[in-house]
Design a protein around this nucleic acid. Structure first.
Lengths: 213, 213, 213, 213
DNA sequence: CATGAATGAGGTTTCATTCAT
DNA sequence: TATGAATGAAACCTCATTCAT
């Protein structure tokens, strides 16, 4: 009997989380189609196949929905980042894996990144500006981690002697530039080729002992 | 008599243009402060010291005001760009001058810039923020011109053999990253030093024949 | 076996009544805090530690809850009124006891009182705040009873010859005025003293044969 | 020419004020019909024969409309009060005139008083609590003035020796009680009779040297 | 009976745009 | 051309009530 109750509560809670997720996914789709200001709560509700009021049982405002969409993407990204990038021993490989991850990830959420870049003034220039509170922590963690990789690379002699934090900023700037560009124009080359090109261009530029071009 | 009429019309026309300009400048300030959606026509009117109705004698919509603001900023930037950067013969110097221009320009018109680079390439998501046709042309011209400089540099052997367009993307990304960073934290070094550092870091990385670090 | 059923039903029924009472008490607290329109069923449910749906198993609407709260308060007050005031033989003493009751009651249950005396006679304006039938009867009974006391006092020569209904109105007005005053400024004198002062001031004014001041 | 401009501006301003007044009057009517919570801005707009948005050019919220309705009534009242009551030399006459004014005034705005008493909890007990900011000052002025009258009456021997402030509170309480009562049940006696009765009952009770009843 | 997620009508408020003066 | 009051569509959000479990 307690078991059944437990299972029941478990199911209810599971359903609630499922609905929450469905709403967030619907919200992401609508934000992608219409942008933050263009999206209406009404439309998100229709997309999620819930009534408007229901959304407000999960999120207290449209703004919070937006924030959570970003948060979800950021969390997912960080989860993979920590597993696929931070586990690498050699800095060069870590940066290579990060380039790949960032580009692949972007491909999956391309539409939303477009929204993100456009929504908040300053966001393309300074993503941390447009982020919801919870997200800023994640972003800082990410920046620190990447800086750590560069630091290690400089120390162990893999990379030229450069300020690791400057390297991180350049890295982010470059990736963002490409991501922003490809969010507007359909890329002409397949993802793999683009990844390799950026790896070459970036890592090649900072790697110690490279031959002169 | 005809003379007087001519003078009068001339004055009237001059005044009209002056008002138009004042309105655009007010609009720019407000868009910079509030972003496109946050700005209200009412606020722009107050800033311009005109009545709302008057604005609609010059522009058919808020959207058009926005488009013209962007256009003006882009034109101003491009005007200086063509004179101070494109006139250089040697690619390395041109890029150096561009770095200087972008950083100086940013320091003087940081709000300015935000609007320009934010909106830049026109959105498919939020039509109201899409760049006006004319402006997209300007932006493309800028990108092409910069790409041209890199192209020349690669061809004449100043720079390593890299895809010039990729170089442009990287260049923009890096500049944006620094600009973003300095817009959050007051720079510790004077502008001149910062300019030199970036010149070294960026140009140094792509210049042929550089010594190993 | 039938016994056990009977006991069970008895317990169930007792529990049901207990829950009903708990809900009403919670509702009263919330109505006192927020007023009718400010109170939400959600908040009442939380206060009562039941789910919203449960409340609707006992009352068919928020309006009915409100009506029952009023009714309960009115009944409680009237219960004491009839025992402590109406039992007095001499009008002067009855009015004195009523003064004491109203002031003490107010001190103990000031939120309480507000609901009763505020809402009192039912609104033609805001149907949702109209008193339930039963309650209007109670209030009228109260007014009638007080008027009756004055009537008796006038007739038996205790009070000056005045319209008893007018006296009731004056009495209510004066009590309310003091109560209001003391609800703003902490009284400087203890309750007993205040009670005596009002007795003197009010009864003294209407008592036959008083000395000139 | 400047004259014409002046007249024009004057007319515009006059019209604006007229519209403001019309809206307030419409609002009063709707509040009277439906109560504060029952009234919708939409309905007020229809009653005033303006679009909804127009109301918001004059008042920033429904709440402010309500506050201004009260303020207008209070100001009008004070205006007459100062002319018809404060000008009397003898305290007894002044109080008599005040009773008449309060009752007559109430007759004109009866509906609104009903709303007022019902809208804010505690308003019948302590009207000053429910008043908008601007109004509180007016109310204080009124209370002071009335207290002054009683003070003068006590000093010159017209009234019994009683605390003038207590007298004011009793006076207000009594008037409010009647007003509240008659806002619910149609009075059975004509206004004149009621005025005289209250004059007798109240002034008669506090006048020095009255004969025993 | 207890639960609480789902509902959706309806409220207040904003603001780009128009138009009579 | 300059004005700014008037417009009204449309947005976000609340909350009493229902109902499947």
């Amino acid at each position: 009997m307690p078991d059944e109750v437990a299972r029941k509560l478990g199911r209810k809670e599971r359903e609630r989380q499922a609905h929450r997720r469905e709403i967030l996914e619907a919200a992401e789709r609508v934000f992608v189609r219409k942008g933050y200001h263009g999206a209406t709560v009404e439309e998100i509700a229709q997309e999620a196949e819930f009534a408007v009021g229901t959304l407000y049982n999960f999120f207290k405002s449209k703004e919070q929905m937006y924030a959570e969409v970003i948060l979800k993407i950021a969390e997912d990204f960080l989860y993979v980042f920590e597993r696929q990038v931070l586990t690498r021993d050699r800095p060069q490989e870590a940066i290579g894996a990060l380039i790949e991850l960032r580009l692949r990830y972007f491909d999956d959420h391309r539409g939303f990144f477009r929204v993100f870049f456009e929504t908040s003034p300053g966001s393309r220039i300074d993503p941390s500006r447009a982020l919801p509170r919870d997200c800023v922590g994640l972003y800082d963690r990410y920046v620190e981690a990447v800086t750590g990789i560069f630091d290690q690379g400089v120390k162990d002699g893999s990379f030229d002697t450069l300020d690791p934090f400057y390297l991180t900023m350049c890295f982010e700037g470059i990736i963002n530039a490409f991501v922003a560009y490809w969010s507007r124009r359909e890329p002409t080359e397949p993802l793999d080729v683009r990844i390799e090109k950026i790896k070459d261009a970036f890592i090649g530029r900072i790697r110690v002992g490279r031959a002169h071009a």
